[in-house]
Each structure stands twice: as C-alpha cells, then as structure tokens.
C-alpha cells in the first residue's frame, strides 16, 4: 500500500526536486541580502565619523566609479547571453559568453583592488576612521563575492568543455550562478548610489 501511494507521486517529486535546487539557492541569496543590509546599516551610521581623516570628497572620483559600474553592468548582460545560449544547448557559445563575463568581472575586481591599494597607500586604510572601516567592510564584502563568482565561472567553464549536451544538473548550476551574478549587480547599484554618489553630493 505504501509502495502504491509513493509510485504515482515519484515523477511529481522528481519535478519538484529540480525546483528546490534553485529555490534553495534563492533562499541563500536572501540571507546574503540580510548580511549586506547589516553592512549598509553600519555604513549609514558611521558615514560621517571621519575622525579628522579624509572625507569622501577627497577619496572618491567619478571616473573609476563609472568604469567599475560599466564593467559590472556589461558583465550582467553577457552572462544573460550565456544563459540564452545554454537554453539552446550551444555549448561553445556558453563558454564564450562565460569567458567574456569572467574578463569583465576580473576587470572590476582589478579596478577595486587598485582603488583600495591607492587609498591604503595614501593613509586612508580601514584603520583610519570609523567611516573608512565601514566603507572597506561593505565594499570589500561585495568584492569578495564577485571574486567567488569568478572562481565559480571558471569552474563551470571547465566542466562544460568537451561536453555535447547540458544535463539538468548543469543547467541548475548555470541558473544558480546567474542568480548570484545578477544579485551582486543589484548590491552594486546600492553601493554606488549610497556609498559613493550620496557621499559626493
């Protein structure tokens, strides 16, 4: 009897199982959102505590910020093109778009590291003031996430090489990474708006 009741629902469960992979990752992203929310709240409280140190007007410049934003925005659409190719099972196209996305993301992280290095060299490191502690914690947490995304992109590119089809499991991995990458872009919107631009008014 127990067997009879489980058999008809087996196929149904299978279908829902695939849903839960992506949904589970979505729930992780929501918890990540709360981490970023806490860091934004911390930054909002400490944003004017300069302790006589450098202010945002002396530290931030529009050029570098615009370039970083452009790279991340472009990488979002190139990943989207990769997903479209994945749904059409054009594997070489997927690898190509993932590669482009990787290079754009690498450019973003490179620019950010260079910006941090300049700031620390100029005596505006995270130990200078409460404002800078909050700034470095928030922005480098985002940068660390992007770096993890880059490692993930390379991993999936290697796994896709030499294959001729994209099984369900692989598609789930690509979908999760897609959510992760676009989520980081949304966090960056809040970073460039509230951390950089709002401090440069």
């Amino acid at each position: 009897m127990a067997q009879n009741t489980t058999v008809p629902t087996a196929g149904h469960d299978e279908h829902h199982h695939e849903n839960t992979v992506v949904f589970g990752f979505w729930v992780y992203l929501m918890t990540d959102c709360i981490i970023f929310g806490s860091l934004f709240a911390t930054f909002a409280v400490l944003r004017n505590q300069f302790n006589g140190g450098p202010t945002p007007h002396e530290l931030f410049e529009f050029g570098g910020l615009g370039l970083e934003t452009a790279l991340l925005l472009l990488s979002s659409i190139t990943y989207g093109f990769g997903m479209i190719a994945a749904h059409k099972t054009q594997i070489s196209q997927v690898i190509l778009w993932l590669g482009v996305t990787f290079l754009l993301g690498l450019g973003f992280v490179g620019l950010e590291v260079r910006e941090f290095a300049h700031m620390i060299a100029d005596g505006a490191g995270p130990d200078r003031s409460a404002f800078l502690s909050a700034f470095f914690t928030l922005v480098s947490t985002h940068g660390l996430h992007v770096t993890c995304g880059l490692i993930w992109i390379v991993t999936l590119m290697v796994q896709l090489m030499g294959t001729t089809e994209i099984p369900e499991r692989m598609m789930n991995k690509l979908t999760c990474l897609s959510l992760f990458w676009h989520f980081l872009d949304i966090v960056w919107i809040c970073v460039f708006t509230y951390v950089y631009l709002a401090s440069m008014i």
Binding site: E18, N19, F81, I84, H87, M171, N172
Partner: peptide, 14 residues
C-alpha cells in the same frame, strides 16, 4: 526552464 521560471530572450536582456 526546469525550475519553472521563464528565461529571458535577447531582446528582453537588451
């Protein structure tokens, strides 16, 4: 897609 969500087209991404 397998997860039941719609995936975009080239035009929607653009």
């Amino acid at each position: 897609s397998s997860s039941g969500e719609s995936h975009g087209s080239v035009s929607s991404y653009l």
